[in-house]
Amino acid sequence: MLQVENLTKTYPSEDGVQTVLGGVSLSLDAGESLALTGESGSGKSTLLTLVAGLDHPDGGTIRFQNHDLTHLDDAARADLRRGQIGVIFQQFNLIPSLDVAANIAFHARLSGQADADWCETLAERLGLAGHLTRYPEQLSGGQQQRVAIARTLAARPKLVLADEPTGNLDEDSSDIVLDLLIEGVRETGAALLMVTHSLRQAEKLDRRLHLSHGRISP
């Protein structure tokens, strides 16, 4: 489903060009979950943004569902994100002007896959049923991240990308939210690629890859 081959990415810096990814390769099958671990600055988040089509690599290929992301233009990558890829961020990044119900349904409605029953089920399952008319600023961090997960799952993406989804939460909340994410992803049959610092959390996923200085290390 997802094949990343020899991916490279550099950024200009005051000391010259800084290599963030130095030839990363990985693959992910449908329904599979993969944890990406590594120290700060190892390139985990950069890899995720490239796979999401949010940024363009300097070299290598990213094949997803028979599409080569590296050869798609901005609009085509946006189409792919809208229809088949869901992204969950550490900062939740909910839409502050919409209430919880509208936030949950938003991505699904954008992709033309709105299913009110499914949204309701997700809200119920993620413990958000009592907060549907509230706005993001009125929720706790844990609640906001559950809304972000529900928003992604509501669109039934083929691939879920999560960048430290519990990084802003305390340990108890983290476990609850992560369990809900894994359960939801499995139920929808999506693949999950998750960036995390926590080895304990990484162990909950099917596989784990460690990134160090922009390269996969054994």
Binding site: L54, D74, A75, A78, R81, R82, G83, N93, I95, L110
Partner: peptide
């Protein structure tokens, strides 16, 4: 976030 969900910058 809206851009991340598939709306182009244009």
């Amino acid at each position: 976030p809206v851009w991340a969900m598939g709306l182009t910058r244009e």
